[in-house]
């Protein structure tokens, strides 16, 4: 095709006579990566919150992800692979979504002024999404790198020691709010953007979606705060033995010398 010539593309004529299909793909991928990440975050929250049930239960779920119950011994490398997949999604999503952020003072000023006079909920929510998205760039990167490099250090004591003695809790606290707000708004936006669940009355659907969005955000924030609190408490009580790994009583008994 002639328009694939670097010369034609170089002078900005690659889109004649046929407009590039890339913007359509980017839009779909932005939604896809955002949706996958947001749903993953729900699953993730349920896994980490197993600590609220018991240390043993959290330990069991963690070992399950390491293939312990299939292979008979833990392979933390499996966790690294999952983390790497999420990292790819995350980088792709950030790359796509960053196109939407205000990129200079004029755009920033326009949006801020507009938002203040309009007092329109979805317009303000977009701002919250943009700000939290920007925060996630930094917060999530640190967290994912840690998980990629130390996948084996996940467990009732291991995680709690990191949260408390390793002083990760401030990062997790900020990240919790950023992710829950961003992901919740994002899923709501996905639904209205693509017209999901729209049965006849679009306005009724939208207000139901908005309610569901807030309910989910509140639910996951509450669960997240309780979970973080639980790790901080365990970490605090375990501080003088920080670094010691957790071994469930059942396994200790089973491993007779």
């Amino acid at each position: 095709m002639a328009s694939t010539s670097p010369t034609i593309a170089g002078v900005g004529l690659a889109d004649r006579p046929r407009a590039s299909r890339v913007p359509a793909r980017l839009d779909l991928l932005q939604s896809f990566t955002g949706g996958v990440l947001a749903l993953f975050m729900w699953g993730h929250m349920f896994f980490v919150s197993t600590i609220l049930v018991s240390k043993d239960f959290m330990w069991t779920v963690t070992r399950m992800f390491e293939g312990y119950f299939i292979f008979g011994k833990p392979y933390p490398g499996i966790v690294s692979v999952i983390v790497f997949g999420i990292l790819v999604m995350f980088v792709a999503h950030a790359f796509l979504a960053v196109r939407k952020l205000p990129i200079n003072f004029r755009q920033w000023q326009m949006y801020r002024g507009h938002m203040k006079v309009m007092k329109h909920e979805d317009t303000t929510l977009w701002w919250v999404q943009a700000i939290t998205g920007f925060m996630l760039f930094f917060l999530v990167t640190v967290h994912l790198y840690q998980m990629l490099m130390h996948p084996g250090l996940i467990g009732p004591y291991e995680s709690a020691d990191r949260v408390w003695s390793g002083r990760w809790w401030p990062l997790y606290l900020v990240m919790l709010f950023a992710v829950e707000l961003h992901g919740g708004i994002g899923l709501y936006r996905l639904a209205v953007k693509w017209g999901w669940f729209e049965r006849g009355d679009a306005d009724a659907t939208r207000s139901a979606l908005k309610k569901a969005k807030w309910a989910l955000t509140v639910f996951f924030l509450a669960l997240g705060l309780a979970t973080l609190g639980a790790y901080m408490k365990i970490g605090y009580e375990h501080a003088d033995r920080a670094g010691e790994r957790y071994v469930p009583a059942s396994v200790q008994q089973g491993a007779v010398k």
Partner: peptide, 22 residues
Amino acid sequence: YYELVGTDDGVFGCMSLLACHD
């Protein structure tokens, strides 16, 4: 239609703020 609105200044630029609708 894609030639007319298939760009980031077209339908893919819309951020679904829905103020227009409201």
